[in-house]
Design a protein around this nucleic acid. Structure first.
Lengths: 144, 144
DNA sequence: CCGTATCCCCGAGGATACTG
DNA sequence: CAGTATCCTCGGGGATACGG
């Protein structure tokens, strides 16, 4: 059993098929700092390198290149070079990249719908005072 | 404009509502190394601490505690202590935690359906030989 | 049984400078 | 314009030991 492997509940894809490893993979891809922003920018058609750079606030040249390479490697994005002067490179979602948009949007929408509830929960959790006493192994401990 | 802010495409939730920040938040939560495994384990009812620990291969005591605290803080999981001897603590998905299951499963299923295609794409990308020559600014450069 | 406290390592990612 | 190359920082997360 590999590290990080878990016994998945019945309604998850069979673990033997590598379902949870596949999930880890795609989560490592879209869970990183920039991939989703890039995918979002490419959702409505091809974009050039600097077009992406300008559209994604805060991203460095380095991370844009690196993330695009990763997406390209995984077959989610295509890279097309035009040997013009000055050079021009277009990035575009592949068909697979397009299909990823559906589950990703479901997550984005969930996040959007529940952000207030999460913020509230955090507030309550953080504001919660330490209990005056705790009961451990049948013994009461008071706070001083 | 905050760092990491992007202009979202039209079909994404309005950025002004914090849609992309909310997405960042939820992605930071479920995108980490263990949260999904825990949520998966809790999908079919409450589980005890060590039950989770045994079920999730490779997780350390520390990370289980930390991740559970994070999930609890965000209102996705409840923690219930029973002051018995020995002590017993149950963790359970909240209603909000349950609703998260839907978009997450969509992603898990996508990962499952496309893992082969991704593996293939990677193979092709990694096997791709360096081009014998490149054309830059209208000039041919040969490889040595 | 259910945690904290410490120490430590490694890699994601930022800043900056240079290049075809 | 579209990248590399280099250096450096910072925090997620592992290992281990201890505590109620």
């Amino acid at each position: 059993m590999s590290p990080g492997h878990i016994a998945l509940p019945a309604d998850m894809p069979a673990p033997e098929t590598g379902g949870c490893l596949a999930t880890r993979q795609i989560l490592d891809r879209i869970g990183d700092k920039w991939s989703l922003y890039i995918v979002a920018m490419l959702a409505h058609g091809p974009r050039r390198f600097n077009e992406l750079k300008r559209g994604i606030d805060g991203i460095s040249q380095r991370m844009l290149t690196l993330t695009l390479r990763g997406l390209e490697r995984d077959g989610l994005v295509t890279r097309t070079m035009y040997p013009t002067i000055p050079p021009r490179v277009d990035y575009e979602l592949t068909d697979m990249g397009q299909t990823l948009l559906t589950p990703v949007m479901a997550l984005v929408n969930w996040a959007n719908d529940n952000q207030a509830a999460i913020a509230d929960a955090r507030q309550r959790f953080d504001d919660k005072p330490e209990p005056d006493q705790v009961l451990i192994q049948g013994v009461v401990y008071e706070r001083r």
